[in-house]
Write a protein that binds this DNA or RNA. Sequence first.
DNA 1: GCCGTTTTCGGCCCGACTGTTTTCAGTCG
Length: 577
Amino acid sequence: MDKHQVAAILDEIGTLLELQGEDAFRCNAYHNGARAIEQLEEDLATVVREDRLGEVPHIGATLREKITTLVTTGHLPFYEELRKKTPPGLFDLLRIPGLGPKRVKLLYDRLGIDTLDKLAQACESGQVAKLKGMGEKMQQKILEGIQSLRQMGSRVRLDQALALASRLIDGLRTAPGIIRMELCGSLRRRRETIKDIDILISSDTPGPIMERFVGLPGVTQVIAHGATKSSVVVQGDGRLSMNADLRIVRDEQFPFALHYFTGSKGHNIAMRQRAQQYGLKLNEYELAGPDRRIRCRHEADLFRALDLAYIPPELRENTGEIDAAAKGTLPKLIEADDLKGVFHCHTTYSDGHNSVEEMARAAQALGLKYLGLADHSQSLTIANGLTPDRIRQQQMEIEQVNKRLKGLKILKGTECDILADGRLDYSDDVLATFDYVVASVHSHFKQSREEMTARIIKAIRNPYVTMLGHATGRLLLKREGYPVDLEAVLQAAAECGTMIEINANPQRLDLDWIHCKRAKALGVKLVINPDAHSSSEIALYHYGVDVARRGWLEKSDVFNTQSLADVTKALAARKSK
DNA sequence: GCCGTTTTCGGCCCGACTGTTTTCAGTCG
């Protein structure tokens, strides 16, 4: 059982206990434990085997025992018992805004409601309004919640959320009285998937801005509309629909509110605790002690007041950033401008939409100095994978276009399939014609974890392979990655100097940021690639930079921050080995 | 259930909003 499964079970236990009416702090301990396991950088099985779980914050004796049982046996009787006692439908009820564990328990205990359908019926017949603490309005709100839950998924991809959020920001920008405005929450931290949009504004006259917000185009439902906080449902393209919150504070409160609403929750709690050590109280309005208030104009002032270096939003996940900021050992994070080129782009030779030259011109317009083209290999017939003949044709075309280009060089690559047994999709003499090789898995996803791991490691050890493409094959919110022991993959990559791609396509973002940190610790070089299938998608590398930043990566950790000359030299050196 | 040079017991982040309430519980982030 891997860490994601273990974390999911711990989290579920926390919720199950809430539904039982357990003490909230005990429930929270399971949620905290789940987060700690989810964010574990090392391989969970290894940590368990070496009996080091106790060193993980938020894992005490009880959780250590339960996690060990889960990892070693795959079962946990405590969890299974708890599940038997709780109808699974109660989890659906919890997703309705306004319904938490207390009310769900009440609905179940008093009315036997354990599905959305039963709840809808009970609301329509007026039974819910009669319960203690409920009423007509609550009943109506629940009905609306059921409706929107049935239309709306829970999380959306970063790129989709950003698009929707910028529409809201644009709509607000002209409202009167805005002093400062920022996107907060997981969007500002650039998480790969987003639950809702958080916007913060400072103003002395919040009223008209709030009015503008709840009336913006696309707003389909107003969940809350207060003086300083409003919450709406907003409709995007297609069936996409998200919650959006707006908070308005006075300008002197802005840095505190910005920090607070950026989160993460874990980071905020840790920051509060640090403030307490200074005899100060930190909330969304101020940093203050019994007899003093710390003046801050910007977020950086707030960190400085607690003797911390500025912590970029992407690092605020409570994974050691506060300690590092205190010691002055925070990384100098990579920035988008550091990238000098990319290595994984497709053309019309396989399944891309633009020609070699069109791709090159687009890369040039973005200020890149080299563009690696890596079309699919012959086995991937569905994507029009290239036969050796067509490779020669493409390479000749690249040479022609290169003669015409100034300031950008196209590099000849391939995204070569890793076959089921770990061999590559081309013979060595064909592989030798490329400047570099991206090796990727596109088939046989159902292999066992052991088979998949061995297959990928075999490819990584192939001297022709320069980098591993999308390491887990995940499609965010659509498809889980294939089962693979990433720790073993990273170690193999470290041993033979094979690089690992951060696939920047927002549908993938694979390697994910947690493993970036681990890769760096092992000395693996990473490379940020857009996996572009059209000229406009080359710019997607920005999302890969976001991932890299969340993974604490610096310019020197990423191969394609190097100049064309250095990259060419490194690739040539690797080929001649 | 976790945590700890103020503590091994008694804390655990904290404020806005809503709806049902005569002062507050539940939810949310």
